[in-house]
C-alpha cells in the first residue's frame, strides 16, 4: 500500500451514513403508525406518501385502492424512491466504493481483485445480471418525478389549517423537503440526458439546450450534495411527523 493518507475516511463515512439511513428507514417503514398528523395539522410522512390503502384513513389524499392487511403502507410505496436512489449514478459510486470496495478509493486495490489462490478474479462491472438492471435508472426517474409532484402536494396540504391557510414549523420542513427532492430529481444524470444532453446539435434544440445549460447541468454538478441533503431531510421530516403525532413535540404555528 503506497497511499499513506486517510483514504479510508470517505468510504467509512459513507457506510455509516447509509447504514444509519437504512436503519432509520427500516424502523419507520415497518412501524406502520404515527405517520400522519390529522386535526389540527395535515402532515403526512414522506415515507408513507402517497398513502392509498384503507388503513391510511384520512391520510389517503388520493383515495383508497383497497387493503394490504397488516403490512405497513410504506413498504408498498418505498420501492420506487428506493429503486431511484439505488440506481442513481451518485449512489452507485458511493456503495461500489464503500460497501463493495470496488475500488474502496482511487489507486487502492479492489477487495476482490485477487482470489485466495493469487489469481486475478474476473470483473464484469455492470454488464451482467443483476447489475445490468442499473440501466433502468431512467424509468425510476419517471416515477421520481411523479413522487416529487406528490410530495409537493403534501407540502401544499401542510398549509391547510383549521379556519384557512396557515403555516407551522412542520409546513416549513415539508416545503424544504419537497424542494430538495425536486433539486435532487432534476439534477439526475438520466434527466440531464433525456431533457437535453441527448441532442446531437444544441443549435436545433434551443429550449432543451437552455434547460440543459441553466438548470440540469448546474444541479447535476452538485448531485452528490443534494443526494445527501434530500436523504437526510426525508428522514428528518418523517421523524418530525412522528414526534408531533405521538405528542412528544408541539408544532409551533407561525400564522
Amino acid at each position: 500500500m503506497l497511499r499513506n493518507d486517510r483514504w479510508w475516511l470517505q468510504p467509512l463515512a459513507t457506510v455509516l451514513g447509509l447504514l444509519a439511513f437504512v436503519a432509520y428507514g427500516t424502523w419507520t417503514a415497518f412501524r406502520g403508525n404515527h405517520y400522519f398528523v390529522g386535526y389540527p395539522r395535515d402532515y403526512l410522512s414522506p415515507f408513507y406518501s402517497p398513502c392509498l390503502v384503507n388503513s391510511c384513513g384520512k391520510a389517503a389524499d388520493f383515495g383508497h385502492l383497497g387493503g394490504i392487511g397488516t403490512v405497513s403502507p410504506a413498504l408498498v410505496i418505498l420501492i420506487f424512491p428506493m429503486g431511484f436512489r439505488l440506481t442513481c449514478y451518485y449512489y452507485r459510486k458511493a456503495y461500489y466504493r464503500s460497501f463493495w470496495a470496488s475500488p474502496p478509493a482511487c489507486a487502492v486495490a479492489d477487495a476482490g481483485s485477487t482470489s485466495p489462490s493469487g489469481l486475478r478474479s474476473h470483473y464484469s462491472g455492470e454488464t451482467r445480471f443483476p447489475l445490468v438492471l442499473q440501466n433502468a435508472h431512467r424509468y425510476f426517474w419517471y416515477f421520481a418525478v411523479l413522487f416529487a409532484c406528490i410530495l409537493t402536494w403534501d407540502a401544499v396540504e401542510a398549509f391547510r389549517f383549521p379556519g384557512g391557510i396557515g403555516m407551522g414549523l412542520g409546513t416549513l420542513f415539508f416545503v424544504i423537503n419537497a424542494a430538495l427532492i425536486w433539486i435532487y430529481t432534476l439534477g439526475c444524470h438520466a434527466c440531464r440526458h433525456i431533457c437535453g444532453g441527448s441532442a446531437k446539435r444544441f443549435s436545433r434544440s434551443r429550449v432543451r439546450y437552455r434547460f440543459w445549460r441553466d438548470v440540469f447541468t448546474p444541479l447535476n454538478h452538485h448531485h452528490q450534495l443534494f443526494a445527501w441533503m434530500s436523504l437526510i431531510f426525508i428522514a428528518w421530516t418523517d421523524l418530525y411527523v412522528y414526534l408531533v403525532s405521538t405528542g412528544a413535540v408541539h408544532d409551533p404555528r407561525f400564522f
Binding site: 452507485r92 470496488s102 455492470e126 445490468v132
Partner: peptide, 8 residues
C-alpha cells in the same frame, strides 16, 4: 458496461 462510475 464495465465502468462502474466510481469517478477515480
Amino acid at each position: 458496461g464495465l465502468c462502474n462510475i466510481t469517478k477515480c
